[in-house]
Design a protein around this nucleic acid. Structure first.
Length: 425
RNA sequence: GUGGGCGUAGCUCAGUUGGUUAGAGCGCCAGGUUGUGGUCCUGGAGGCCGGGGGUUCGAGACCCCUCGUCCACCCCA
């Protein structure tokens, strides 16, 4: 056993898996940038107060925060999610609205790790600040939906709900609390405890014992104001207009306190672990104001990279392609020709690797084979003397002698033209 | 935070009711005559059997503690 290992709940994303992560965020960026979202990179830690707005009844705030005091005596927390930090950023810089941003990065929550759940976990997401338009909700929800589609996922379902305006929500919570308390003796012990902290969360219980009581509970729909109702209707109409399949789930309440009106969740039906939500979001119209900014509506979502890739694994989509090297240089003389040719070919735009440590030709050829390169460029003593090299196509095993000065054009004739990376004149 | 399963080579795992120098496959390295990969053959390197304590003449196997990991609850992406 080595002296040090990754801390609990963290892990190394090694190659080639890390390449898949990069492709994942690249694909996400491509889709949302096509809709005018721009990249934002907020800090990984902020004043603790920024995140306390997520809700003092939420586990994220009460037990999962990675907080500490820095050397200057400030109360700091590693971000448990991106939304609050982005709202703080908006309040601080006051960009023109609507402000459409996307992000990708790690979050931190002090939880016990299990399948699809880590202490350091990565998300991609978008946020829009400055508009209450329900058709913006539609755009946001659709972005996520289309991204899952672009990955090749077919077994993702979209659930939506409306939590109404703050007053609606408060009235509903009170009604729910009264109802649940009147049936408390039939609830599981865990749900009774949850009821004390946050009645909404009882609706999320997975225990069969609670199901009949939850099924018969009052629903939020009866408490929605006319405005909130109209908003929700327009969201549904918009989704239908775009052909986005959704189902209304009145038990969908989301974990953070700042949500109001539209909330939604993407759930993978091909995951058999406990964590099947691959993404979620909603509207948080009061959050910027809570953080000391101007009253500004907002809506957004976050997608879990781990869980989404887990879903990709189980649907066997978005699989990793082998890394593509154009050429691998084998030099059994002194390595100097490999040094020069590799530099020249890389400058010309090719992806080129080589062997080191002057190993035997057989050994270097094995490395060339493993590298996945399409051709091997071989320099033995004969070639070194004649100023040429043997170019071997590793797929077809055809090979020919080529002058070293013509390697660039010869390689282009096999693997195709490339755009130069550097001007070598 | 609570409960359960599991920790033996880089990876996946064997290791009989406790009994000599702890094994396999894959991977890695080196060879298989003179300069050529994938297949095949041969050899090699690599383990304080997660850590600590205990029981025993003797522990990888049994007991306790601890750490890690996986799964579930909780919660959430």
């Amino acid at each position: 056993m080595p002296s040090f290992q990754t801390s609990p709940g963290t892990r190394d994303i090694l190659p080639p898996q890390a390449g898949r992560w990069r492709a994942f965020t690249a694909q996400f960026a491509d889709i949302v940038e096509s809709a005018g979202y721009e990249c934002i990179i907020p800090p990984m830690f902020e004043d603790l107060g920024v995140f306390l707005r997520l809700g003092d009844a939420t586990d994220v705030v009460t037990k999962e925060m990675y907080d500490f005091e820095d050397k200057g005596g400030r109360r700091i927390a590693l971000r448990p999610e991106h939304t609050a930090g982005i709202c703080r950023s908006f309040a601080q810089h006051r960009p023109t609205t609507p402000w459409k941003v996307w992000y990708s990065g790690s979050n931190f929550r002090y939880e016990k790790a299990q399948a699809g759940r880590f202490r350091q976990f990565d998300q991609v997401g978008i946020e829009v600040l400055g508009s209450t338009d329900p058709l913006l909700d539609v755009e946001v929800i659709t972005m996520g939906w289309q991204f899952f589609e672009s990955l090749g996922l077919r077994n993702v379902v979209l659930m939506i709900n409306s939590l109404g305006d703050p007053e609606d929500r408060a009235a509903y919570i009170e009604a729910l609390r009264v109802y649940l308390e009147s049936h408390a003796e039939k609830l599981s012990e865990e749900s009774r405890a949850t009821l004390q902290r946050n009645p909404l969360r009882v609706l999320d219980s997975k225990r069969v014992q609670d199901k009949p009581i939850i099924d018969a509970a009052p629903t939020i729909a009866q408490f929605l104001s006319d405005d909130a109702k109209a908003h929700f209707e327009k969201v549904k109409a918009g989704l239908t207009a775009l052909g986005v399949q959704y189902s209304v789930n009145e038990g969908l309440v989301r974990g953070l306190d700042y949500y109001q009106r539209t909330v939604f969740e993407y759930v993978s039906t091909s995951l058999d672990s406990a964590q099947t939500a691959v993404g979620g979001g909603g509207r948080y119209d009061g959050l910027v104001e809570d953080l000391g900014g101007p009253a500004t509506p907002g809506v957004g979502f976050a997608l879990g990279i781990d869980r989404t890739l887990l879903a990709c694994d189980s649907e066997e989509v978005f699989l990793l392609g082998a890394p593509q090297l154009d050429a691998f240089i084998v030099d059994v003389v002194d390595g100097m020709t490999a040094l020069r040719l590799a530099d020249e070919l890389r400058a010309a735009g090719f992806a080129v690797d080589r062997a080191y440590d002057g190993r035997s030709m057989k050994s270097q050829m094995k490395v060339a084979d493993r590298s996945g390169a399409r051709v091997a460029i071989i320099i033995g003593s004969d070639e070194a003397e004649a100023g040429n090299c043997t170019v071997r196509n590793l797929m077809t095993s055809e090979q020919s002698l080529v002058l070293q000065t013509e390697v660039v054009t010869h390689l282009a004739s096999i693997v195709g033209e490339r755009n130069p990376r550097r001007n070598t004149q």
